[in-house]
């Protein structure tokens, strides 16, 4: 039984990897199977994690009759399939949009903006890093000197790059260039990190194929 399921997983892995050669029927079957399984799982997950505990159980046990409102709103979403009464689906959509908008205002303001600005409210220059560098002139100690200027002046340069109310010319252009350069380093780092993460995942798949499933290699 275990080997059967391992083989299912192995064949699924090979089917997806076959796309590296070319778009082929095996990959298309795997792709459609994946979408079907994922959609089915979402329905089950919402049923067990939200529908039963948040709606059905409190409603049927009589503890909260107000829940008839979200039940009706949820069902109203399906009017989207009708041309005549499809506009009713805007009501539940508004519930989702309004909640997300309200939470986004607070979440982004307190979680992202304030915290990020606060983390950059540090001295522009840390004299201790210079004395550390003069004692031990290593690369890492030199990079430590740059830390605070980058987090303060560098951040201003990055933000200035996104500030389009003034034209980026003359001296201001140089600030924008510093901002762009930092952004490029960020994008490059993000790209390199993503590639390495995906490569690690790929090794994991090969480990599964050759060690766990086919057992032609050992760890």
């Amino acid at each position: 039984m275990d080997f059967f399921w391992l083989s299912v997983a192995g064949l699924a892995t090979i089917a997806v990897l076959s796309f590296l050669y070319n778009d082929n029927p095996l990959y298309k079957v795997a792709e459609h199977f994946f979408v079907g399984i994922a959609a089915g799982y979402v329905v089950c997950a919402e049923f067990y994690n939200v529908f039963l505990p948040n709606l059905w159980n409190p409603l049927t046990s009589g503890t909260d009759y107000w829940l008839v409102i979200p039940l009706l709103l949820g069902l109203a979403l399906f009017t989207r399939f009708s041309n005549n009464i499809g506009w009713i689906s805007r009501w539940p959509m508004s519930v989702i949009i309004g909640t997300y908008a309200g939470l986004a205002v607070i979440g982004f303001a307190s979680g992202d903006m304030v915290l990020q600005v606060q983390a950059s409210l540090i001295p522009v220059f840390e004299p201790a890093t210079v004395s550390k560098f003069s004692g031990d002139p290593s690369v890492m100690n030199f990079l430590d000197i740059l830390k605070n200027p980058l987090f303060t002046l560098g951040l201003i340069a990055v933000l200035f790059y996104f500030f389009f109310s003034v034209e980026h010319k003359g001296g201001l252009k140089h600030i924008a260039v510093v901002g762009t350069t930092l952004l490029m380093i960020g994008f490059g780092a993000g790209y390199g990190y993503t590639v390495m993460t995906r490569i690690a995942l790929l090794f994991d798949r090969f480990y599964f194929l050759f060690v766990e499933w086919l057992q032609v290699a050992s760890a």
């Binding site: 982004f108 303001a109 992202d112 903006m113 990020q116 600005v117 983390a119 950059s120 990079l143 740059l146 830390k147 980058l150 987090f151 560098g154 951040l155 990055v158 933000l159 790059y161 996104f162 901002g179 930092l182 952004l183 380093i185 960020g186 994008f187 780092a189 993000g190 990190y193």
Partner: peptide, 18 residues
């Protein structure tokens, strides 16, 4: 690189996106 210049760029993007 990940903790300083990359964090500065991400921070700038996050503040703008926020």
């Amino acid at each position: 690189v990940m903790n300083v210049p990359n964090a500065v760029a991400q921070r700038g993007i996050l503040i703008g996106a926020a």
